[in-house]
Amino acid sequence: MAEGNVFQFSSSAYLEKLTGKQASNLDELLKLIESCTSSSIFFHTFSALRKLREFHFPYTNDFAVWISTGLHEEALSEKLGAINLTAYGTIESLRERIVEIIKDFRDQNPPAFQKKADVPFYLCDVTRIVYLTDKFAYNLKSLRELLDRISIDSLYFHFIESRLYNQLHLDDISTWIEQSLGLTELAQGIRNIDISVYTLEEIRAKIGELIDEHMNKPTTKTGV
């Protein structure tokens, strides 16, 4: 993480924890979502972006995928899939929004709550292990150079997972660019990247493009 003006890249690895808990219908899913750990909510929403990370696939969060494939309730799946994960300040406010959408749907479509899925939803959790790497950025130029060389797990940690420890709309990279380099406009551009529609490799490319554009502007402060 950022220390002073230096940004030391971390990376993270995780072990998926199994809870033995499952839901076969929307009522049971609602109860799981209301009672599970924050870490579980994060795992089934933000961490879903880590899965299939090389591929284009409509895989925005596990709840939406199961409601579509298991219960064939496409409208509810779309409502949950369309949640802008970064619009919520905390996991608890994200949890409240998910619960609210499912309850609203229940009010409008009570029969959907009678459906039983062939394959249950399995509640999982995760143990995250964070470690420092030997890669340091001292300025925007070195950050740009390292961006292409850091592992995909390191990118995931700084751009996705770090939101769990800070605020959901704030990633490490844009925070460092704003706070240490004073480049507010560039930081905002990076924050505007829609994490739900890109693979991690595409996110890497997007951040790179934004930094390149900024560095190629002759009159702007570069942070170099």
Binding site: A13, Y14, L15, T37, E54, V126, T127, I129, V130, Y131
Partner: peptide, 29 residues
């Protein structure tokens, strides 16, 4: 991405670390 032996080695290393801190959902090395 998921099913090569290198990933399996990583999981055993992570398991050793996780068992040292069974109550923690985040372990910072």
């Amino acid at each position: 991405d998921e099913f090569l032996i290198t990933k399996c080695l990583k999981r055993y290393l992570l398991l050793l670390l996780a068992l040292d801190h069974p109550a923690q959902d985040r372990i910072t090395l």
